[in-house]
């Protein structure tokens, strides 16, 4: 059995930043493995450790910088990694979920996994759509926002819980092959061990261009275009307590007493 895990290196803005054109100035961005993908990796690695003959492959569409992130996935137990990139992708400004789904579909075609895990959403642009779009594109069944998984490979079924709003979970049987979008909290992601980090150096990390995947640059054409980015007008009327921690704490204590939630 093979599990393909899609992973994204996401950017996070520092506290103070400025916007340069249509994005935050790169100087103020820090890059890390997407939080949701960390749980997806862990889920796949745990299934591998529980079973026999299970291959876990990760794929990212991302620049060379992302290899650091991918190595972390390898260090945590992923067997092999694929990175898709070329000049045409680098020149594209919005990679919308439908486009990503088309590119990832070509990887699925080559790899023929039984299961694909994606994150529920990418922490930076938060489309929350790539996994389900991919499922539809490749003709797999799917389930979104999965926070528990019990795989019955023999019966060809994934028994999942989907986390709905308000503390309600839906129990669903999903036929394989399928794409599951993984929610945080489904497991406890491990830290990479020193041994894992060493081993990751010798695990395969293949770089594919679009043409390696039998795709051409036409696949990148998208009707979506980012036209603006700005800091939202603060609607906040917050009274900001100023001064040393001692001063601000005093003011807050007084407020709590005035409101009446603590005794004065």
């Amino acid at each position: 059995m093979k599990i393909l895990v899609t992973v994204k290196e996401v950017a996070e803005a520092e506290d103070d930043f400025d916007i340069d054109g249509l994005d935050i100035n790169d100087r103020y961005l820090e890059y890390d493995l997407n939080e949701w993908d960390e749980y997806a990796i862990e889920e796949a690695v745990q299934i591998k450790e529980d079973g026999e003959d299970i291959d876990v492959v990760s794929v990212t569409i991302g620049p060379e910088r992302a290899e650091e992130t991918i190595r972390m996935a390898l260090a945590k137990g992923v067997d092999r990694a694929i990175r898709v990139w070329d000049d045409d992708i680098a020149a594209t400004d919005v990679l919308d979920p439908a486009t990503k789904a088309d590119v990832l579909a070509a990887v699925v075609e080559q790899e023929e996994p039984d299961l694909v895990f994606t994150g529920v959403q990418a922490g930076d642009d938060s489309f929350g759509a790539t996994g389900v779009a991919l499922a539809e594109t490749i003709g797999f069944e799917w389930g979104a926002v999965v926070n528990a998984l019990d795989l019955d490979a023999e019966a060809g079924v994934a028994n999942v819980r989907r986390e709905l709003e308000g503390g309600i979970e839906e129990l669903t049987e999903i036929q394989l092959p399928s794409v599951l979008t993984i929610q945080t909290g489904i497991n406890e992601p491990r830290y990479a061990s020193l041994r894992g980090i060493r081993q990751a150096q010798s695990k395969p990390l293949d770089v594919h261009t679009l043409s390696d995947l039998d795709l051409d640059a036409g696949v990148l054409e998208s009707p979506l275009r980012r036209t603006e980015m700005y800091e939202p007008e603060s609607e906040g009327e917050a009274v900001v307590f100023e001064g040393s921690p001692e001063d601000t704490a005093d003011e807050l204590a007084e407020l709590l007493q005035d409101v009446g939630v603590v005794e004065g």
Binding site: F127, G128, A133
Partner: peptide, 24 residues
């Protein structure tokens, strides 16, 4: 809706209809 169930079918509908989707 961009609800949890919306996350579970909006991208599939858009993909099947070949209509661009903007979420959230």
């Amino acid at each position: 809706p961009n609800s949890v169930n919306g996350l579970d079918y909006a991208p599939a509908v858009a993909s099947r209809l070949d209509v661009p989707l903007v979420t959230d």
